[in-house]
Amino acid sequence: MIRNTGNHTQTALRTSLPETELASRANFAPHARVVREERPAQITGLPLSIRGLRKSFGDNEVLRGIDLHIPAGQFVAIVGKSGCGKSTLLRLIAGLEKIDAGSISFGQDFQPRDIQPEDIRVMFQEPRLLPWARVLANVEVGLGRDRASKYAHARAEKALTEVGLADKRDQWPSVLSGGQKQRVALGRALVSRPRVLAFDEPLGALDALTRISMQRLLERVWRDQGFTAILVTHDVAEAVALADRVLVIEEGRIAHDLVVNAGRPRQRGSAELAGLEGSILSHLLSADDRT
């Protein structure tokens, strides 16, 4: 399963990785097996390679050289303080902003493949549902060019069932709760069976309980479908609860790359996760003190 990251990819990348990257990558291999066992049989996700990625807005240098390889089907969380460029990185990956320098490629290193727009989906903090379309029609929007196909209805209904909202199919979005709206947005993102799913603080606006049930839902669909997941979050506990790997962005670079090797399903609040959460938080806070 991790087979997708062939050896040459790893070596090719190593040469370009900073010190910290190397250290955590060395850690990564032995734990990979643990993660592998929890994975679904088929991984549909795409691997992702980012090389020397830079992005500035005017004088504001937001990303100053991001190097990153994400194996197919991995669940990666990105944390960092506000304004450090997490959303920008996500928008670049999703093709919503133009790259200044460097590259982002999907697929194997030596055989980059053409990707369809439907292969990559983004979910934002706001559900961004069309208020004038019923729930089912909103999910159909996610089919992209397949919207007109005769299976559109059936596929949208299936996606709605996956997010547990089949009974709301004929409602207007305005009558749904915040958590339900976000689930519709998730259904819309899932309906085209994406191979990379990027989340920009999708649960940021939800209350604590809804958040936890949404986290479970995210984890479940990720395990069922095997896409590559990239989650930007403010909540370090959420990052360690969901992700295989946590990246900390500081000053436009990946400052830390940590593997979370707790087995799944994870015990929320377990000592292992709490310890990891504490060390990530102290990274973030020490960076804050320095500035």
Binding site: L130, V141, G142, G144
Partner: peptide, 26 residues
């Protein structure tokens, strides 16, 4: 944000008008 959403989900200009802009302006 809705217009950006429409673009992300691959709506053509015509579709974007019919599904997002016109209903929003109504």
């Amino acid at each position: 944000q809705l217009i950006e959403m429409g673009r992300i989900y691959g709506m053509t200009d015509g579709e974007l008008f019919r599904r997002v802009i016109f209903p929003g302006a109504l």
